[in-house]
Design a binder for these strands. Structure first.
Length: 270
DNA sequence: AGGCGTACCTGAGGGC
DNA sequence: TGCCCTCAGGTACGCC
């Protein structure tokens, strides 16, 4: 489900709803989604207070008063839903339920059971393999360009590799490449300086615009309040096969790259 | 080292 | 109706 803009929207919602609250208990209904194993997870998280909630790549990072962090990856269909004290209807497919001192609850729900919730120690280097944050000052053109050098992998596959640039998924990879007028299959290292410039700019532009719209709800993504995003109404190529390119009018085509659906305009993306 | 295929899951939607 | 197939915001792992 969620890529950087969706995870950012969820993290902001959780920060607003949960900062300062104390976790009184955790109910783990599907043990495989937590680590450490269930009994340790429940024992260690009980009594913790939430300092703040942020994001790293596609991970939601809940910072706890002890210095530990609760690191959540939503994968395809995971949700983090805040239920205020008065909420009566349960969130379907809830795998973990955190209860707070004031009656608020946080449901970690996931139909497909891919999402994971991990409690990590203060010094644990859990993000060692996570790449550059595309909306941070670290994401300079020169650093981005350096990552592309010598890579023969298709540029779209490169963009999906979380170890290089973190947070881009299938939707925003397709959108950024369309905006930069670059063919998704072009070898990453073969891009000219001009194309690299366009792509560096389009990655930031598309992610910022999507955050402004509170993410993309193609199917069932919702934020921490259970609300859908709005960027699905502004997609240029993703899932638009058969429809006209918004630049040149030619038909958008769907291909497959690295086992993922890939949408592009064969006329203006070269 | 890096690229590729498969596995992990459930559900929605289309074709017949 | 209903069965069967494909596809879905993602990553981990094993194999070459």
């Amino acid at each position: 489900m969620p890529e950087l803009p969706e995870v950012e929207t969820i993290a902001r919602g959780l920060q607003k709803a949960l900062a300062g609250k104390q976790i009184v208990s955790a109910e783990v209904r599907l043990p495989k989604v937590v680590s450490p194993e269930r009994s340790r997870f429940m024992a260690e998280i009980a009594g913790e207070t939430i300092d703040s909630v942020g994001r790293r790549g596609k991970f939601v990072v809940v910072s706890l008063a002890s210095g530990r962090s609760l690191v959540v990856h939503l994968r395809m269909t995971g949700r983090l839903i805040v239920q205020t004290a008065g909420t009566t209807n349960p969130e379907p497919y809830t795998n973990v339920l955190l209860a707070f001192g004031d009656g608020t609850r946080l449901a970690f729900a996931d139909v497909r059971q891919f999402g994971r919730m991990r409690l990590v120690g203060p010094e644990e280097p859990w993000a060692a393999e996570v790449g550059l944050e595309p909306l941070s000052d670290d994401f300079t053109f020169e650093r981005f360009s350096g990552l592309l050098d010598g890579r023969s992998t298709p540029i779209k596959v490169f963009l999906l590799d979380q170890r290089r640039v973190a947070g881009i998924g299938n939707i925003y990879a397709c959108e950024a490449l369309w905006e930069a007028k670059i063919h998704p299959g072009r070898p990453a290292g073969s891009l000219s300086r001009e194309r690299r410039r366009r792509l560096h700019a389009s990655i930031q532009s598309v992610l910022r615009r999507a955050i402004d719209q509170r993410g993309t709800s193609v199917d069932d993504y919702v934020d921490a309040e259970g609300l859908r995003g709005g960027f699905q109404n502004q997609l240029s190529v993703y899932s638009r096969d058969g429809q006209g390119c918004l630049r040149c009018g030619r038909s958008i085509v769907r291909t497959v790259l690295a086992q993922r659906g890939t949408w592009s305009c064969r006329t203006c993306q070269r």
